[in-house]
Nucleic acid binder design. Structure first.
Lengths: 252, 252
DNA sequence: TCTGTTCGTTGCATCATATGCAACGCCCGT
DNA sequence: ACGGGCGTTGCATATGATGCAACGAACAGA
């Protein structure tokens, strides 16, 4: 809506790909160098871009600080955190907390596994939306038309042979998840890793976040997965109760 | 330099404090509501702000994704990471990697302690600049006038009784660090935690990053700290060599 | 149910402001 | 010494951002 701001902001994803010099930025924006310069200067003043010694621009430090503050201000996260830690203490595996926003699912908290096997994931990182247990949980709660709309738009990368292959299969999976109130990812993202997840609901019953436990194939047998499931669901329910209690829902 | 962009970007730190509605944003920017609306809309289109159900604005998901991509593109981080993991494997404690940028020091990587005691820190979080070992290392490498300028500008919060109290003491400490080529934080941030750190240098000898090991007081005796020191320095030197080799310094 | 208030939204006329141009200066390589 | 590339600056133009005023919806109180 505001051309100037629009152009300025377009610079950020561009720099996220890697450092770029003034000319490159101007070209990719389709504007004159002097214009690009002024935009970059403004971004620089706000700390969003950083100028390295070779004069090329990179994304700047304030970006991290902002993302950091933002994530710390999420009330679900604050309430959930101690419970995630406890869950981790009980099962030892990696615990994730995720939310849905604007067609993306992203991790907002994580407690690392006690075991040497580590999952590659990071707070703020967009989740593999078509396969992750938390993603299924969050999307399953959308209205039927929304679910369809989103499912159609997604890509379905085959991380493994057990990844969800297409929109049809995904919608079917979402229906199951919606029905049963929990979700799994059985080697759909990484061959050797299974996850079990459960939804966290606000006072109005809508899913506001989802948590999951990720455990390596070798360690967790089918029965173990079942124990994990009950544990996970119990934790999620506890968080839901606490969240609904302390936190008035912002409108239904 | 660009008023419109400047105003738009001013909204971000404002929202970092917590969600705000249109009126609040307009007031704090000192502009008309319609103006604020257009700015927010533009930010929204780029995913930097998110509108929650109660219509208030929050910082958005893309912010995280951007910060994420940015940190992953740092080449020091990429090179250092395996060595940090190995260092962690050898000593078991939390390992941090940090860089200096625009008067801030921030963590860009972290390997968690094997022990249950966890430090509160997060990638992207600004470091307690006056006390952390990594901060001392990074600042010690600045030119003398720069050091003085920065030291004057800083606050010196007394996290503990052993925190660095003022600019004078800080500059003195930096001189020591500069001289000896390593740094410590002995309970200056958290009473019970000690850190040892060493600098990572580029081909031109300038410090490009710093790493540190953080260990709880009770576990690490004076002699143990010494073993950690040699281990830490060795790791840092290894990374320095690798970084200088593969990576032509961007100008001296 | 009606009324007053608050808050987000829209269209529009005005002019502040972002834009592109052209010229300059700098660094680097030849 | 010379030429090319790149970042930077000042300036005239008109584009596009701004504030206003009016509308509409949601809400509270009577």
């Amino acid at each position: 809506m505001s051309q100037t701001v629009d152009r300025a902001l377009s610079i950020l994803p561009l720099l996220a790909e890697g450092p770029a010099d003034l000319g490159q930025v101007a070209d990719r924006l389709g504007v004159h160098k002097s214009t690009a310069l002024r935009l970059l200067r403004t971004l620089h003043e706000h700390g969003l871009v950083y100028r390295q010694q070779d004069q090329r621009y990179r994304l700047g430090a304030r970006l991290f600080a902002l993302a950091q503050e933002a994530v710390e201000n999420l009330d679900v996260r604050e309430i959930a955190h101690p419970h995630l830690v406890e869950l981790n203490a009980q099962c030892g595996h990696t615990v994730h907390l995720a939310v849905y926003e604007e067609e993306e699912v992203l991790y907002i908290d994580k407690v690392e596994s006690r075991y040497p096997v580590r999952m590659y994931s990071r707070i703020g990182k967009p989740v593999a939306i078509t396969v992750a247990a938390v993603a299924k949980l969050l999307l399953a709660d959308l209205s039927e038309p929304e679910r369809r709309a989103v499912a159609e738009k997604l890509d379905y990368p085959m991380y493994t042979s057990r990844s969800v292959p297409n929109a049809g299969a995904f919608l079917k999976e979402l229906a199951v998840v919606r029905e049963q109130g929990w979700a799994t990812d059985l080697g759909g993202h990484e061959e050797s890793i299974n996850c079990v997840g459960a939804p966290i609901r606000g006072a109005d019953g809508r899913v506001v976040a989802a948590l999951s436990v990720s455990a390596p194939n070798v360690v967790v047998t089918a029965e173990e997965l079942l124990t994990l499931l009950t544990l996970v669901r119990r934790t999620a329910d506890t968080i839901s109760r606490e969240y609904s209690g302390t936190n008035r829902p912002e409108k239904a």
